[in-house]
Write a protein that binds this DNA or RNA. Structure first.
Lengths: 135, 135
DNA sequence: GGTTGATCTGGACCGCACTCCAGCTCCTAG
DNA sequence: CTAGGAGCTGGAGTGCGGTCCAGATCAACC
C-alpha cells in the first residue's frame, strides 16, 4: 500500500505543473497548508491540496502573478473570517481577465483582417494593400 | 520646423511602448527597416514605422514572442514574394490567440463561480462550500 | 554664453517564474 | 544483495522582455 495521498509525480501529471514547480510553489508559500510527508519524508498530497493546485493553475493561466496567488493562499490558510477580502481579490482578478479577453479579441480581429488581406492577395496574384517597406 | 517624421518620445506616447523599448526593438531587428535619423543623429519615425509598431504592440499583447515578431519583420523587410509564409505565421498566431481566449473564458467562469460562492456566503453569513484547510 | 530638456550609445541590471543540478535517501522488484 | 526509479534538499542557472544608467550630444530659448 502506498499510503494515503498522492506522490509528487502523480500530482504533477494531474495538475500539469512540473515536479520542480510543485516544490517551488510550496517553498513560495502558495499552498493552503503544509503538505503531508510519509515516513521517508516524501510529500503526500491530499485531495484538498490537489484541488487547490488546480485552482492555482487556472489563476496562473489567466495571468495572476505568484504574489497575488500567495496573498490569496494566505487568506485561505487563515481560515474563515476574511471572505470579503478573498472576494475582492478574485473580483479584481476577474476584471483583469475580462480586460484581457477584450484585448485579445481586438488583436484577433486585427490578425484576422491581416490574414484575409494576405489570403486574398495569394488567391488572385498581385494586389494592393501589402506591407512593402521598399516602396 | 522639427523636420519630417516623429521623434522617439512622440512615438512612445503614441504606441504605448517606452522609449527604451523602442530602441530595444530596433536593436533586436523587429522593425521593417532602418529608422531615419536627423542631422543630429536622432531617430525620426515615418508613418509606416509607427503603423508597424502599432501592429507589433498588438501582436505582443496577444502573446507573440519577440522571436516570431522578428521573423515576421524579416519577411516584411524582404518585400513582396513571401506572402504565403507571412500568412502561415499570422494564421498560426491567430489559432494560438483563439486558444488563449478559450482558456481565459474557462478561467473566467471558474473565477465567477468562486466569487459567487463568496458573495453568497457574505450575503447570508455562515454558509457552506468554503475553503477551510483547518478542517 | 548658459540652462533646460530631449535624445544618443553601450552595457549592466532586473523581475518573474521556473528549471536544472549534485549528491543523497528511500523503496521495491528481481 | 543490488539495481533502478522516485523523491529529497539547497542553491545555482535560465529565458524573456525589457529597464536603468552614465556620460555625452544636441536644439531651443533667454
Amino acid at each position: 500500500m502506498t499510503g494515503t495521498g498522492l506522490g509528487i509525480g502523480e500530482v504533477a501529471r494531474r495538475t500539469g505543473l512540473s515536479i520542480d514547480a510543485l516544490r517551488f510553489y510550496e517553498r513560495e508559500g502558495l499552498l493552503v497548508g503544509p503538505v503531508d510527508r510519509d515516513a521517508g519524508g516524501r510529500r503526500r498530497y491530499r485531495p484538498l491540496d490537489v484541488e487547490w493546485l488546480g485552482i492555482c493553475v487556472r489563476l496562473r493561466e489567466s495571468g495572476m502573478p505568484l504574489a497575488d496567488l500567495r496573498r490569496f493562499a494566505g487568506l485561505v490558510r487563515q481560515g474563515p473570517g476574511n471572505e470579503a477580502e478573498r472576494l475582492r481579490l478574485l473580483d479584481a482578478h476577474r476584471r483583469r481577465v475580462d480586460e484581457q479577453i477584450r484585448a485579445l479579441e481586438e488583436c484577433r480581429s486585427l490578425i484576422a483582417w491581416k490574414t484575409a488581406v494576405y489570403a486574398d492577395h495569394l488567391a488572385r496574384g498581385e494586389a494592393t494593400g501589402l506591407w512593402d517597406p521598399t516602396a
